[in-house]
Write a protein that binds this DNA or RNA. Structure first.
Lengths: 144, 144
DNA sequence: GGTCTAGGTGGGATATTGTGGGAGATATCG
DNA sequence: CGATATCTCCCACAATATCCCACCTAGACC
């Protein structure tokens, strides 16, 4: 299970290290694509295949699903981890997520999200959860 | 059942001892995450998996639950107990709970909470004073 | 009261990880 | 077709995490 978050550098060769903890879970080949909220999604090849299948099963007549499918597929990029566990980020994706140098890698169960540091800070501050709302959600899912 | 509380040191290598009493209940692998009121939650792997499953089952189209899931997962950290029963606390979590050196480990049924000593004092003092009102609540829910 | 044991704490040595850069291979363009 | 830019693979280094062992204190037991 992919959890936690790490701050890594995107170097001038547009490489970024996948935290070593996650490498065994992701495998050697991954797919990077544009995600929600100005972040990139990284899937293991296996997870990606599941998603691709789901996307292809969506109705083509619905305008929304058609555009969502295009959004996911057109920006998808498959890349291998190099010998020390880094992946490549294309210019388009770099630009999409507005990543300059520092990036935040976030573990989200079965996928990894990549954010620019600034966007991540903004996002997590903006969603500055009051203790009450967190407590409420926690009790909803049966933790408290 | 995890009950009672212990005061242990968080050393410079960001390790903290789990009370030996609790080790058999928690198992070798645990997950630490940000909790409520400036405290950290420690779950056994089993308990955590239940939570993670619930989280992943939440609808991802809802912006609120998405941010809640990110909050829970991005601050989570899975760690093994070392040969003498200590776990690691990441810088992020250390900062979140404002733990410097002395920390209080509190048994809360199925999870452990970790507080900085100062926060714990503050919190428990405030609570002791209102013991009467707590007693009232307990009778409301049929405990006493 | 002394000895023994278990649990908590600290520190050193080694392995791992993240990051940068070079050289050869490949593609691009005039 | 040659020159130049880009990409890919490989190696090197510094920082840090991980593993292991040793100490120390407090309580138990004789």
């Amino acid at each position: 299970m992919l959890i936690g978050h790490f701050i890594h550098q995107l170097d001038d060769k547009k490489r970024i290290s996948i935290p070593s903890k996650w490498r065994s879970l992701l495998g050697k080949k991954v797919v990077v694509t544009s995600g929600l909220d100005k972040s990139l999604f990284v899937f293991s090849l296996k997870e990606w295949q599941k998603i691709a299948e789901k996307l292809s099963s969506l109705s083509f007549t619905n305008k929304d699903t058609r555009s969502f499918t295009r959004f996911m597929l057109s920006n998808a990029f498959d890349t291998d981890l190099d010998s020390v566990g880094r992946i490549l980020i294309t210019d388009q994706l770099k630009k999409f997520a507005d990543i300059n140098k520092k990036a935040v890698l976030v573990g989200m169960h079965s996928r990894v999200e990549i954010w620019s540091e600034e966007e991540w800070e903004k996002y997590s501050n903006a969603n500055n959860k009051s203790a009450d709302s967190v407590a409420g959600k926690l009790s909803e899912i049966g933790v408290l």
